[in-house]
Simulated scan of single mutants.
Amino acid sequence: MEENNKRQAILKAALDLFAQKGYNSTSIDAIGDAVGIKGPNIYKYFKNKEDIFLSLKDSIEALYLTKMKENSKAKVSSGKDLKEFSINQLLFTMDNNLIKKMRRMGAVEQFRNEEHKTMSTQYQYVKIKTMFTEIFKSMIEDGIMVNEDPEILALAYMSPTSVLIQVYDRDPKRREEVIKLSEAHFDLFIKTYCLK
């Protein structure tokens, strides 16, 4: 149990430092200092800094898979369902500390590290677009949405909210504004493209 607690403390400290300083600018010694141990003692728990990053990445994957499974159980059968689903996704994305910090780290590291660039693109673009493309395909098949290209609809739907999340990341005091503008965007999109 003690070893697991120490691993978790190291992961939390590393993520905090990665989000503040960036992955490349964070040393093993700095992570050790943050948890009250000498840097080299981290090697009892992790092979290296990349192993810490990969463990964090695995945690994000598990978190997203859990959220996707929860969401896949909810059938989007109307514009109202779509808005409720979207607000839940937005709040999850904005409020989950692990996701916020990984997104912040990705914003810095995407220009320095190929793996971080790929990860940022996956989580901030590909996975979201794929999820909404599938939802919109189903809604079109069920006669709930106009028959347009579901991938283009997904891009039109997700892009403003993605930009607003970046605004929130830079200035968390604008949280309510971001939620309000996102809801207004969802309402306009649903009014324009949903039939039910």
Rank of each mutant, 00 (worst) to 15 (best):
S77P: 00
S77I: 07
S77K: 07
S78R: 06
S78A: 05
G79K: 01
K80L: 02
K80W: 08
D81C: 04
L82C: 01
L82S: 02
L82N: 00
L82W: 02
K83P: 06
K83L: 07
E84R: 05
F85D: 03
S86G: 07
S86P: 01
I87H: 08
N88L: 08
N88V: 10
N88P: 01
Q89E: 14
L91T: 06
T93N: 10
D95G: 11
D95F: 02
N96A: 09
L98H: 02
L98M: 06
L98K: 03
K101Q: 15
M102F: 13
R103T: 11
R103A: 12
R104W: 04
G106A: 14
V108N: 04
E109I: 01
E109F: 04
F111W: 15
R112S: 15
R112C: 14
R112H: 06
N113T: 00
E114Y: 14
E114F: 13
E114G: 05
E115V: 02
H116Y: 02
T118A: 14
M119Y: 03
S120T: 14
Q122G: 09
Q122E: 11
Q122H: 04
Y123Q: 01
Q124W: 10
Y125F: 09
V126H: 04
V126T: 11
K127A: 15
K127N: 14
K129N: 06
T130E: 05
M131H: 02
M131F: 07
M131G: 01
M131N: 02
F132Q: 03
